[in-house]
Design a protein around this nucleic acid. Structure first.
Lengths: 146, 146
DNA sequence: GGTTTCAACTGGACAAAATCCAGGTATACA
DNA sequence: TGTATACCTGGATTTTGTCCAGTTGAAACC
């Protein structure tokens, strides 16, 4: 059954970073693990409640922080300054619309032109850093606003 | 004189986006226009005061927002979730240390391996967006923390 | 399975960050 | 130099996020 397989996936993701599997964490990860979904903490809280999952707002904030610190979530600011979270499993970059604020995911596998490897190597050689992750932030105008 | 030339530069940058030139704006832009400088609003406020420039905290917040909306500043969140601003004029990307939180700028002209043009074109063709700016966010471990 | 241990959850109080407002000031342009 | 108005400011207010102390529930033993 897909539901069980999915649950196991969250369980192993949490285990991999040394965190316990709990219902709130699974639900947060499940809620965020979709393409182009980037809620604020408040929106996530409301969204989970609407799905019939009672959860405390403190729990939402707490876990967004914990999951971010473990690298399971990506935190960023939108055009209006709101804090948003992204937990979509597949590697991707972000498109921001400067007009309407829309945020769209662009899958890495659909962008063969962009290979982060040479950049990683160059930065490691020149700056002495070790690079774990490279993401692109693209700002422009979405189709609807053109 | 360098000071006057610099001032003219800020003046024209502001004019280009339809904003008035004011002392607070010039000082904020001047403060931020250095490599690897990314203060929080509070730090910027304190930094300006320390330089002997009296300024209101509301003014700092107000202008950070206005300048961000006009594209003169780049807003982002650091590893701890603090909002930070970047006004360094030369095109660059960001390095984030996952251990100590250090943030370093990497100049685009020192990264010949990374050319955003093909990406821009690909995204415009595939997703129908018009892309104005492409920035990389690199997360890893800085030399001091290795 | 039952028990134990401690991480994780929770609501509500609290603190910090950011915004709003109304009056005064400085800028741009004629 | 005068005038309209964008902009600045301190303080009040709202919003966002954190802390705390009691309770719950996950995992690891037997």
């Amino acid at each position: 059954m897909a539901k069980i397989k999915e649950r196991e996936s969250f369980r192993s993701r949490l285990k991999a970073v040394g965190l316990r599997h709990t219902l709130p964490r699974e639900r947060i990860l499940a809620y965020l693990d979709r393409k182009s979904i980037h809620p604020t903490p408040e929106e996530l809280y409301q969204g989970l409640k609407k799905k019939g999952y009672p959860i405390g707002l403190s729990t939402v904030y707490l876990n967004l922080q914990v999951l971010r610190d473990s690298g399971l979530l990506w935190e960023f600011k939108d055009q209006k300054g709101n804090t948003r979270y992204d937990g979509f499993g597949e590697k991707h970059h972000h498109l921001f619309c400067l007009q309407c604020g829309a945020i769209e995911d662009v899958l890495v596998r659909e962008l063969p032109e962009f290979d982060p490897e040479p950049i990683r190597k160059a930065v490691e050689a020149k700056n002495g850093w070790f690079i774990e992750e490279a993401r692109l932030e693209l700002r422009g105008v979405c189709p609807n606003c053109q």
